[in-house]
Amino acid sequence: MVDRSGTPLVQMRDISVAFGGVKAVDHVSVDLYPGEVVGLLGHNGAGKSTLIKVLSGAYQGTGEILIDGKPVEITNPRDARANNIETIYQTLALADNLDATSNLFLGRELVTPMGLVDDAAMEAECRKIMGQLNPNFQKFHEPVSALSGGQRQSVAIARAVYFNARILIMDEPTAALGPHETQMVAELIQQLKAQGIGIFLIDHDVHSVMELCDRASVMKNGQLVGTVNIPDVTDDDLLSMIILGKMPGASAA
């Protein structure tokens, strides 16, 4: 069981994001403890991705973000990385014209003492991490545009886990994957959990959230419906939260 007695790894308090007049995220608060997987659920357009992009530095919102109980300023993706927050975007955010190695180290290249990028050293590291994540992966010298959906996904995952993330954001990580690869991602999540990494998992699939997550926060129309402990709820409870925006037991009470 996840120990929730200490300070949360991440606290997002009272976050709001507006695009023009539309409130995409409306006073939402969520938190995350070390070694915990928190699922973010909701319809398309419910505001899950927007909320999480505030944490990864892609969007600016109002409200407060605390890491280890200390308030931090995250105004761009560089700030997020400095706080050991890594993100696997739904779009994967890969530069299609570069190879897997260049994408893995993009923005954090290894350099030689002369300040030039050290391609051989980076490729060696890339082969190591890809060997763990996706042993069949061989296309190290081709642009990632030539890779399959699953291979691209594993490059994006490798990029997030290689740099000692403490907080990992996964935006529909299994959307492009087959059953076998999905199973691998599930195993990876268990591994990372065991290392004490906190994970926000955005997913459409209630079933996989029930399987992978410790808690789930459900959003509807930019607002937080509520956060529940997974062991305390059923698939149907989650579904009614997503569709009707009602907390389980609310109708019974």
């Binding site: 993706p77 955010a93 890969l94 530069a95 299609d96 014209n97 570069l98 923005g107 954090r108």
Partner: peptide
């Protein structure tokens, strides 16, 4: 990288 995917470059810091 920026030429290949400006958004990815931005998100990579």
């Amino acid at each position: 990288a920026t030429g290949g995917n400006p958004d990815a470059a931005e998100l990579s810091g």
